[in-house]
Design a binder for these strands. Structure first.
Length: 561
DNA sequence: CTGGGGACGGGGCCC
DNA sequence: AGGGCCCCGTCCCCA
């Protein structure tokens, strides 16, 4: 009897469990169906939004096309830059450039510009950017004047930046660390960051924020710069964070600290300032930590623009400006401050040439695909209306890459195959097919070396270079010569080595008939013809064409020393 | 001086 | 899109 009752009980339990399970399954199915419906609805809505945005984009493209046809001269930023008549559009249409000479003396050499500020006439170095956007600024437009006093100023506080803005300009929307801001400053202002040798400024304009990032250059090597770059820290005492702005205005400023830079060496501050539609986009001052340790990427990935279409669907190529400056430091200054310079000097014909370029073409560049068609008019010293796109195009930084410069002259990334290369380097306008390639390339300009070797202190801009370098430590030599079983860590080294076996000497001297298997050897040989003997023994005055010769000589002749 | 190798920077291409 | 590789050029160093 008891067994019978137990079976019945179990049967009942089983049926209840089944019912519960069925109910649960039904519930789950219902939830899934509901979510699916919601999901589909969201997809449909997104598709609708996409279609609408696409239509909007097409309309704007049409508008741009019209402007390309109609736009003649008076539609854009005019920059009054009388410095040595430089940087007049060495990029394609790149005359929307802002040129700041690197050398403090160069500034001093500049002919002062006389600007009537209403209160009289001042003869100060002035960079004047005028906006007269008929749509946004209204009659009279507005102008933005940056001044650098040449007399009676504290070298470490050498900037006296004023604005001459039209009535109705929008005050700054947001500024971090307002305590650093002069409270009396009621005019709209541009956030300005100045620091030590290498100042980095980033601006983001395609979103709701406008960032200015200040950082050190070589990544932890300069404590002062690190201090400046540390989040939450106030700017250096010699820095001013100034904020002024203007609706529908995007400007870029550059200046350096003082004429004492050459003496102080490390105090080669420069700053770059951008402002764009501060009335719309809050200005947010940020700091940045050590870029070389990877912090950079969190900015670069998120801030770099992708084709850079802002909210108005205006194409703005550069939403971020990152400048690594090598100032007027002598070539003998420490490696932390010169490695970029050295890199440039390596890539150019001569140190002097490069240095000269650095001094005279210290520019920042932003480029918009639009400028290729809009910026066909030369820079005029007269004031001209500001264009409705609010774009300023900086000139090329350092002007160091001939190839890139040529590309810029020829339209750069806007040439025939430019459609695929829609990511433009903000420094040299070189086009890249994807964002990361551009970011990697820009390390050429920024000096960023995010990949560090665990075996030594060396740092690299690219992961593959780090990997290749680590063969130094591992001793790995994967490339072996089939003729002599010699092994090499790099394929190029093997290829070069094989000329030993083939006898190939592709490098021939134009002065004599000597031929060389290695380009470096030809280069060295050419010094014989030129009589170049730049290396002088401090002990005996003897000169040598190569440093190694001098070293060998000193080892032999002056072993004690 | 010349020959040659180690190592690195940068661009381009491929997967 | 991104990582990796190839290639080239260059600097530096040493025999």
């Amino acid at each position: 009897m008891a067994n019978c009752d137990g079976r019945v009980f179990h049967t009942q339990i089983a049926s209840v469990m089944e019912a519960l399970a069925n109910a649960a399954v039904a519930e789950i199915c219902k939830l899934v169906d509901d979510d699916y419906a919601v999901f589909r609805l969201e997809i449909t809505q997104s598709q609708k939004e996409n279609r609408a945005l696409r239509r909007k984009l097409q309309l704007l493209e049409l508008k741009v096309s019209r402007e390309r046809v109609l736009a003649s001269r008076p539609n854009s930023v005019k920059i009054l830059d009388r410095y040595r008549g430089m940087a007049r559009g060495h990029l394609a249409g790149g005359h929307r450039s802002f040129v700041k000479p690197a050398g403090p003396n160069a500034w001093r050499d500049d002919q002062p510009i006389t600007v009537d500020e209403g209160n009289g006439t001042s003869t100060q170095h002035v960079i004047l950017i005028e906006s007269a956007d008929a749509e946004a600024a209204g009659p009279g437009g507005s102008s933005l004047v940056k001044q650098e006093r040449t007399e009676g100023e504290d070298p470490t506080h050498s900037r006296d930046i004023q604005t001459e803005a039209a009535a109705g300009v929008v005050p700054p929307v947001a500024v971090e660390d307002l305590t650093t801001m002069p409270q009396h400053r009621t005019r709209p202002s541009i956030t300005e960051v100045s620091g030590t040798l290498n100042a980095v400024l980033k601006s983001e304009t395609d979103t709701e924020t406008h960032r200015l990032l200040h950082t050190g250059s070589d990544h932890g090597s300069d404590p002062e710069r690190l201090l400046l770059g540390r989040p939450g820290c106030s700017p250096a005492p010699d820095s001013k964070y100034l904020l002024y702005g203007n609706t529908s205005l995007r400007t870029v400023h550059s200046h350096e600290d003082s004429g004492d830079a050459l003496e102080t060496g490390n105090d080669l501050s420069r700053s770059y300032t951008t402002a764009m539609d501060p009335g719309i986009m809050p200005l947010v001052l940020e700091t940045q930590t050590d870029l070389s340790r990877g912090d950079w990427n969190q900015y670069s990935s998120s801030v770099y623009s992708e084709g850079c279409i802002d909210k108005k669907r205006e194409v703005i190529a550069i939403d971020e400006v990152t400048v690594k400056m090598e100032g007027d430091s002598p070539l003998t200054c420490n490696a932390d401050n010169t490695h970029l310079w050295e890199r440039y000097s390596q890539s150019n014909t001569s140190d002097l040439d490069c240095r000269d370029r650095l001094e005279t073409n210290l520019n920042v560049a932003t480029h918009s695909p639009l400028h290729a068609v809009r910026d066909c008019d030369p820079v005029s010293p007269s004031m001209a209306p500001y264009d409705s796109h609010g774009s300023i195009f900086f000139d090329q930084v350092f002007n160091s890459d001939d190839g890139a410069r040529d590309e810029c002259r020829g339209g750069g990334a806007m040439s025939s195959n430019s459609k695929e290369k829609r990511f433009l380097c903000m420094f040299c306008n070189k086009g890249f097919s994807c964002l990361q390639k551009m970011e990697i390339h820009q390390r050429v300009h920024t000096g960023e070396n995010p990949f560090s070797c665990t075996q030594c202190e060396k740092r690299f801009s690219r992961q593959d270079h780090l990997k290749r370098h680590q063969r130094v430590h591992t001793g790995e030599k994967p490339f072996s010569c089939p003729q002599c079983e010699k092994r090499f860590s790099q394929a190029g080294d093997l290829k070069r080595h094989q000329r030993v076996h083939t006898g190939e000497k592709p490098f021939s001297c134009t002065q004599c008939h000597m031929r060389f298997a290695l380009a470096g050897n030809l280069k060295m040989h050419l010094k014989v013809h030129k009589g170049e003997r730049p290396f002088t023994s401090m002990l005996c005055g003897k000169t040598f064409s190569e440093r190694s010769y001098l070293r060998t000589h000193q080892q032999k002749t002056h072993p004690a020393v």
